[in-house]
Nucleic acid binder design. Structure first.
Lengths: 333, 333
DNA sequence: ATGAAAGCGCTAACAG
DNA sequence: CTGTTAGCGCTTTCAT
């Protein structure tokens, strides 16, 4: 309900030039204490708020970044997306960046013109959109997806393969040899890398990889249930299962329980994520913690740096380590 | 890597004035077919993209809305937040609105100046922020929170009370009399209304409300587990439980199972949400479906209308109905 | 139907 | 340290 009041009016009231007002707004130090106070009180008196659109146009900076979320079935139920949104959201607040949320779709690419930088929360079926951004001069970082050198795209990812390997190594060291794996959604790189880690651990320990013990899931609970039902038919039943994410791991535990099998007594389970629900089920779940929120925060702050130092084309290729969190869902055999 | 090319350059190439180019961009009909084609090909040739910041400043419209998410523990693991983000996100895409995500915090209120409108995904502890927005002339709609008339705030909410009542009515009609309730987070209005609905159904059927059968949860699985453990000590064990959300309902089902109790044979369960996981557990969960995505989409489109018709101060107070979805988790008694 | 010119509200270079 | 003068890139009267 307030009249549009502009910097000019503030200047008049304070008895200075618009420039000086602008200086105060932008905290440019070269302003007399006296003038600063006059301007500040005028601002307060008039309840003046600078027009951000005008500021941005004049500065040539958008002060915002876009987070593009790949839109595949189930992304909205994933722990992953939640954590990324949270991490980026909180980081943006402290970086004083507006956060634009863009749900990827085939038709509407994000408008590179209106954002200072772009963060991709993984790249699934939106490769074209990524290319589009890369071909512009807008800074861009991809999360949780590695690219090879010549792709020349900055990324910050989790070491899924190593994380998976450590989980399976742990199982092996507990004496397990008949270890199954329920995968995540194979359209994601993370699921692919976790399979690799699983296989690698087996191979390094001279345990033959049996494709029949690798059941495809998609990170959802229903898929985990289906996978477990399939697994249940295998004789002898694996003594341990490395599951693609904690949500699925919990569902697997339930299915086992429904069939009179206990975790870890009958079957040992390791999940992935370190989702808080690990502590919710009947057994505290041993899992591979991946620093999702940290990754997101780091991505945001790196992107911010790239935006500010337009000149230096820094190259960001970061891989974050995971942690095996040992709880109660695995037993020595 | 492209040089900044402006509307002026396009005009020169097309052999028309910048104004005409602008008209083409904005699809203003009064342009010769011939000129339009010239301009369009010039745009394509130069790969010109209008500077959105300049457009917005000139138009005086932001073409964006902010979604503010209350930041309380667990919001990021909630089905609710996911659905709202999805609904608003998809709606914004088709409305051609940029979506700003703002995680509410005590210190940083959203900047009313830079957005065309504001959507609140519930109001929890961010009343001050809401007031701040309301005192501006920026259109604003609150989701899932009802206000009384004189508060003069537009909202679009779910009829939680009625939804809860119907769920409990259903249980009663199946013959249940000893019905417990595990609540959601009591700092939310939805949880409060669901309790009311629960009590109302009991009262209308002359079943005394026992406070001991109302166990506080917070919408999280761990809280549901704790609540169920508490409930398990009550003799006689309730024959039915109305649970505050599906996630909790599923956890309750697990706890029951771990204790040798089957759903629905021993205990009937009704959830709330119609989360896809309803179909994942050992029994398909009977639940109260709330149209979250629709609510979000509607809120976005309503807000957009308010933004476009700056003049007419429409009053939006919408309550959306729920649906009882009957599956397999309740039995006749 | 089209173009010239005047903003939108602020910042930045340049004098002083 | 401060003010003047140009823009930032586009839209929009207002003539023509």
């Amino acid at each position: 309900v307030s009249e549009k009041i502009r910097i000019e009016e503030v200047a008049r009231v304070a008895g200075v030039s618009p420039t000086t007002v602008s200086r105060v707004i932008n905290k440019i130090p070269t302003v007399t204490e006296e003038n600063r106070i006059k301007v500040e009180s005028a601002i307060r008196k008039l309840n003046f708020k600078p027009n951000i659109l005008a500021q941005r146009l004049a500065k040539g900076r958008a002060d915002n970044i876009a987070l593009v979320i790949p839109r595949y079935e189930g992304i909205f139920f994933s722990f992953y997306a939640n954590q990324i949104i949270r991490g980026v959201g909180v980081a943006c607040e402290s970086l004083k960046l507006d956060l634009l949320l863009h749900l990827s779709s085939e038709r509407n690419f994000i408008d590179v013109n209106s954002v200072g930088g772009v963060l991709f929360a993984d790249v699934i079926s939106n490769n074209e959109e990524l290319k589009n951004v890369l071909s512009s001069d807008v800074p861009c970082i991809v999360m949780n997806h590695r690219f090879n050198k010549d792709a020349n795209v900055d990324f910050i990812a989790i070491d899924n393969k190593k994380g998976a390997k450590e989980a399976v190594d742990y199982l092996i060291h507990l004496g397990h040899k008949n270890i199954a794996h329920i995968t995540g959604n194979m359209i994601t790189q993370s699921a692919q890398e976790r399979i690799e880690g699983y296989k690698l651990a087996l191979q390094e320990n001279n345990i033959p990889v049996k494709e029949g013990l690798i059941i495809k899931g998609d990170y959802s609970r229903p898929s985990a249930r289906r996978a477990m039902v399939t697994l249940l038919k295998i004789k002898p039943l694996p003594t341990a299962i490395f599951v693609g994410c904690d949500d699925m791991a919990q569902e697997v535990t339930s299915v086992l329980l429904e069939n009179g099998l206990k975790v870890p007594d009958d079957v040992s389970i390791v999940g992935f994520d370190d989702n808080p629900i690990c502590l919710a089920g009947s057994v505290a779940l041993t899992t591979v913690r991946q620093p999702l929120v940290e990754m997101a925060a780091k991505a945001a702050s790196l992107l911010n740096k790239m935006i500010l130092s337009k000149t230096a084309k820094t190259s960001t290729k970061t891989i974050l380590a995971t942690d095996l969190i040992i709880r109660d869902s695995c037993r020595q055999i």
